[in-house]
Amino acid sequence: MDRKERILAFMREDAYKPLLFNELVMVLDVPKSDIELFRQVLEELEREGKIFKTHKNRYGVPERMSLIVGRLQGNERGYGFVIPDDETFDDIFIPADGLNGAMHNDRVIARYTKKVIGDRSAEGEIIRILDRANKTVVGIFESSRYFGFVVPDDRRISGDIFVPKDEFNGAKSGDKVVVEIVKWPEKRRNAEGKVIEVIGNVNDPGTDIVSIIKSFKLNETFPDDVLAQADKIPDTVTEDMLKGRR
């Protein structure tokens, strides 16, 4: 059993109560020479969402603390659902005021605020964001005299992205752009970004195709061997190719 598994197994024991770092060092009999390594392992487990550190600096596993780790599925109406990593748990409804800066597809930790009642889903709020999914966003740029904003193509990303005037980088109203997020949203503030690429005007031919490629982060070029194979395909259909076909 490696270090991580040993720590997790210990914290999952029925008798375990969340402990401070120094208490864990003592109980797990961590040698003085390994204390810094032990701290790093705890930090890794915390980043992975496998353990949770409370505001009182006590460590435990989320499932023993009524917390759910999963991925946020946004909705264009502003609310979302946390899809738990553990498929034995049901999805949790997150109202707009419970997102706390989380965006569609972020990996998060949620806390229950309301249990299941009848046919209604459990309700919760995001208390920690483990991993941001939307470093860049594709959308339509709109400008005003003093600032601009990007309306995301993916409407599951709720809230327009604010763009300061000195970060337009040549974008004009009606352009499809790629914006890089430089400040994540907070409870009462939209995300802030800068335009890093102007794809083209929304009405220009081909803009929609490139926008989809950028949104899904698909490759825009093909490997040399694929291009070489494509070059071997004839431009016309021969009689031999038609044999056996109806």
Rank of each mutant, 00 (worst) to 15 (best):
N203C: 00
R132S: 00
L19N: 02
F222S: 11
T54K: 05
R64V: 05
V163C: 08
V69G: 03
L20R: 13
K187H: 11
S211T: 07
I94L: 09
R6A: 13
D166L: 01
A15R: 14
P31E: 06
G78F: 03
L45E: 09
T136E: 12
S66Q: 09
V151T: 14
E220W: 00
I209C: 01
L42Q: 06
R64K: 15
D2N: 14
K172N: 12
D231N: 14
L20H: 14
V182C: 07
N134D: 06
R64N: 13
T238F: 10
R189G: 01
G60D: 14
N201C: 03
K56A: 09
N201A: 05
V41F: 04
G206W: 03
K17E: 15
K217I: 02
L227C: 02
R155K: 15
I117D: 15
A9N: 15
E48G: 05
P205L: 08
I140H: 04
G170L: 05
V137R: 01
F149Q: 10
R246N: 12
D91P: 04
A15Y: 13
F21G: 05
D2H: 03
P234V: 09
H55W: 07
W184F: 07
A110P: 05
G118C: 11
Q229F: 12
N219G: 10
R71N: 10
V210L: 15
N22Y: 09
D85M: 10
R6E: 15
V108F: 06
I117Y: 10
K187F: 14
F10S: 05
D86V: 05
D97T: 10
L42V: 08
M11E: 08
G60S: 14
L8I: 14
K214H: 12
P84E: 00
N201L: 04
S143T: 14
S121M: 15
I68V: 15
K56S: 12
N22W: 07
I199W: 01
A133I: 04
D34E: 15
K194I: 06
D208V: 11
R111D: 01
G170I: 04
D106G: 08
R246H: 10
V177R: 02
V178H: 00
G148P: 02
F168D: 04
H104C: 06
F162N: 02
R132D: 02
P84T: 01
N22T: 12
N219R: 15
V237S: 06
T221A: 12
V61T: 13
E48N: 12
